[in-house]
Design a protein around this nucleic acid. Structure first.
Length: 765
DNA sequence: CTCCTATGTCATGAC
DNA sequence: GAGTCATGACATAGG
């Protein structure tokens, strides 16, 4: 295996060096195998965090995806911007690594828990996953069998405990006592039943024990302890373990680039040149992660041996490593506008596109693993173009709208995380449908048009009084290039072209550009016309993929908070350009979704307020008014030079909006409580019926015992006689059982008097 | 027309 | 005291 790694690594290093010589920055994630000087040579001094580092960090800190701090979400955007411009800005390593670790933990375990587990398993992992559950089942079965055996042992013990009581009986009473024991037998059975029922939880314990016992997966399962299937934990652990192993075995190889690789390098450059027009399509790693992972899955099914095995393994590793970035990529472009981007314009896009695409190509190399395969693959430009086309299609299907839709579907279909596979399926279906339709932009425009009805700010933007809300054209134009290019990075060229068309067609959409991302204090750049098409809520949902899942962790019943989507997306026209950072933060801090059913009445009711607001020429959007933090809101009101009527109406709108959300939450909570109570009621009724049945059985057995004991009592006393030979009266005498298993006949009066004496003594004492 | 459901809105209390 | 949230009560629209 080691020599394969060496071979594999050598080819990658050579390729990376060649690419770096050609001016293409690459990140092959092989720093573990290279001396630091090589890293500097190939990747440059400001190279990004590599996937091995990420894996290391994740293993080292064992961060849990649930330990999400909202502040980190806020900083995450800025950090992500740094990540996106890694070749431009020096990122504090520790901070970035911490964020990346958390960022990776989220999407992996939180949002699509099954997705990665389905996609990224290496064959060995799959085998392990397939075998280990059986082991666990075996353990469970063993545990159950143990429990049963123990129960049997207990039963035998109980019966053996009972036997000595029978032995000392007198021979004359042997038959009678045997009958008595027969009478008492049901009681023993009850005892057994009770012991069984009491022991049943214990017998179940072995079934759960593997989850936390010694055979349980090691505490590496920091991803999602308790909720994640063990299999997922196993494969993750294995994957990271493999990565660590790779890291712990640095292989230093001589730098001997071959002619073959030279050719490959030229081919790659040619591929870049040819695919430059679609460079943005390479920036959808999540999609091509899905794409690439199909092969490993197939390979896994076919049984991996030899070189294919290695190929699938490395491909899994690489695609998995890329996935944290990939999942963020659609949102990335929106926050990409940084200072450097604002100044450099399209340069950065191409740089980034090249970098990403080179990474992608290298991932393909890794997948093949051997230089000969690399050359064969890379020489075939058709394959490259196919990959580009496919990535482009996937990219088109990966629009924020689909993201939002999938979010909605996610909320509709599930509250938990078990829907990962289905979600992935829906996602892929959506993407396929989108690629069949082929024009997501048209749909986005349709949606914009649909929602633009409810626009408030759009109207006021046109109004002369809303001068403060109008973005200066100069800034918009200045930012348009960078933002549009940034958007173009991730969203296909169609987006760009359509945006350009739109910008050429009308300036209105430029004016109503949502400037949520532009005001990012650290990024400093402003967006262009691309922004309205890809609102920030999608970015948020994309940036924090696990967030929708995480928001349910604390049983936060904020079901219908003012939707981020509505905060910006549904009606770009309604969105006032006046967007402060805290407003964005507020919307981000309270992730929310509005069900589609609630949107229509909302727009209707909003139309009422809209009319009033239009009459009073209020220059703010509804979402802005409602979702802005109070400080920002007050600041907005104070700086707006608004009349008293306007202030009152704005406050009313805010109050109504907040109360509307509160009412929705309240109703949802009430419904949940009602459903929970119904479940409890059902369970209690079942328990009651069981207890009643048990009581009836017990009473029946007690009556039977009483009758049999009475008959036995009569029979015994019929055979007993006093000193005079007269039969004893069963009402005057009773049987007394001594501690030494002796049985004596005592008078009832004497026993009553002794009891009285004992009672008197007790009272006196 | 009535009933039911969903939703928005208001009033009120708690924090 | 203001702001926010939760919730009951009422109004309204639509099926």
């Amino acid at each position: 295996m080691l020599h394969i790694k060496e071979y594999f690594t050598e080819g990658l290093i050579q390729m990376a060096i060649l690419l770096s010589l050609c001016g293409v920055r690459v990140d092959v994630g092989l720093e573990a195998f290279m001396p630091p000087s090589w890293c500097e040579l190939i990747l440059g001094p400001t190279s990004a965090l590599t996937h091995t580092q990420i894996l290391n960090l994740r293993n080292r800190y064992s961060l849990h995806p649930k330990t999400v701090d909202l502040d980190q979400f806020f900083t995450a955007r800025r950090l992500l911007g740094w990540v996106r411009s890694l070749d431009r800005i020096q990122v504090p390593q520790a901070e970035l690594e911490t964020w990346l670790v958390q960022q990776e933990a989220g999407p992996l375990s939180g949002r699509f828990p099954d997705q990665n587990s389905l996609m990224d398993r290496t064959p060995g992992q799959v085998e392990r996953v397939q075998s280990e559950p059986t082991m666990e089942q075996g353990e469970v079965l063993d545990g159950l069998e143990d429990g049963e055996q123990r129960t049997d042992v207990d039963r035998s013990d109980e019966s053996s405990d009972m036997l000595p009581e029978n032995q000392p009986l007198g021979l004359d009473l042997e038959l009678q006592w045997q009958d008595l024991m027969d009478i008492l037998e049901p009681e023993n059975t009850d005892v057994e039943m009770m012991t069984c029922s009491n022991r049943s939880p214990d017998s179940r314990r072995p079934a759960t024990a593997p989850g936390d016992g010694s055979e349980a997966p090691p505490p590496c399962s920091s991803t999602r302890p308790g909720t994640e299937p063990l299999t997922g934990t196993f494969w993750q652990q294995d994957l990271f373990g493999t990565a660590n192993q790779l890291e712990q075995e640095p292989v230093l190889l001589p730098l001997t680039p071959s002619d073959e690789l030279d050719e490959d390098g030229s081919v790659i450059n040619t591929g870049f040149t040819l695919g430059n027009s679609r460079l943005d399509s390479w920036t959808i790693p999540s999609n091509y992660t899905d794409l690439l992972d199909e092969n490993p899955t197939k390979d896994t099914d076919e049984g991996m041996n030899g070189g294919d095995n290695l190929a699938a393994f490395s491909m899994n590793l690489l695609t998995r490593d890329i996935s944290p970035f990939s999942s963020d990529s659609p949102s990335y472009d929106l926050k990409t506008p940084s200072v450097s981007q604002a100044t450099r314009g399209n340069d950065l896009d191409q740089d980034f596109g090249q970098t990403t695409s080179s990474s992608f190509v290298l991932a393909e190399e890794d997948a093949d693993g051997f230089p000969s395969h690399i050359s064969d693959l890379l020489k075939d430009l058709n394959i490259l173009e196919d990959i580009q086309l496919l990535a482009g299609e996937l990219e088109e299907g990966f629009s924020p709208e689909l993201e939002a839709r999938s979010e909605e579907e996610e909320q509709l279909h599930c509250d938990g995380v078990h829907q990962g596979a289905d979600r992935r399926g829906n996602w892929m279906e959506d993407q396929e449908q989108r690629s069949r339709l082929g024009d997501v932009q048209a749909e986005a425009e349709a949606e914009v048009e649909t929602d633009s009805d409810s626009g408030l700010s759009l109207d006021f933007i046109h109004s002369p009084s809303s001068s403060s809300s109008i973005v200066s054209e100069g800034s918009a134009d200045d930012s348009s290039s960078s933002c549009a290019s940034a958007v173009g990075n991730v969203f296909s060229d169609k987006v760009d072209s359509s945006d350009e068309d739109d910008s050429a067609g009308s300036h209105l959409e430029v004016e109503v550009t949502i400037k949520q991302e532009e005001v990012e204090e650290d990024m400093g750049a402003v967006g262009g016309h691309g922004a309205p098409r890809f609102p920030a809520n999608h970015e948020d949902s994309k940036l924090f993929p696990g967030f929708s899942w995480l928001e349910h962790i604390g049983h936060d019943h904020t079901y219908n908070n003012p939707p981020l989507s509505s905060l910006s997306s549904p009606a770009p026209g309604t969105m006032s350009p006046i967007q402060t950072e805290s407003s964005v933060r507020a919307g981000r801090a309270r992730p929310c979704r509005c069900s589609s059913s609630s949107l229509a009445p909302e727009t209707k009711t909003w139309s009422r307020d809209k009319e009033r607001a239009r009459a009073l020429r209020i220059p703010f959007s509804y979402q802005l008014i409602v979702n802005l933090p109070v400080e920002e809101f007050n600041h907005l009101l104070s700086s707006g030079q608004l009349s008293q009527q306007q202030l009152t109406l704005i406050r009313d709108i805010r109050r109504r909006g907040k109360n509307k959300i509160a009412a929705q939450n309240c109703r949802k909570r009430k419904l949940d409580v009602l459903l929970a109570l119904e479940e409890d009621l059902k369970a209690l009724r079942l328990q009651r019926s069981e207890l009643l049945q048990e009581k009836r059985n017990s009473l029946r057995r007690l009556q039977d015992m009483k009758s049999r004991f009475g008959r036995l009592h009569q029979e015994i006393f019929s055979q007993l006689a006093d000193d005079n030979g007269r039969p004893l009266d069963a009402t005057e005498y009773t049987l007394r059982f001594g501690p030494d298993d002796t049985v004596t006949v005592a008078s009832v009066r004497a026993s009553q008097s002794s009891k009285k004496h004992r009672g008197v003594k007790k009272r006196r004492s």
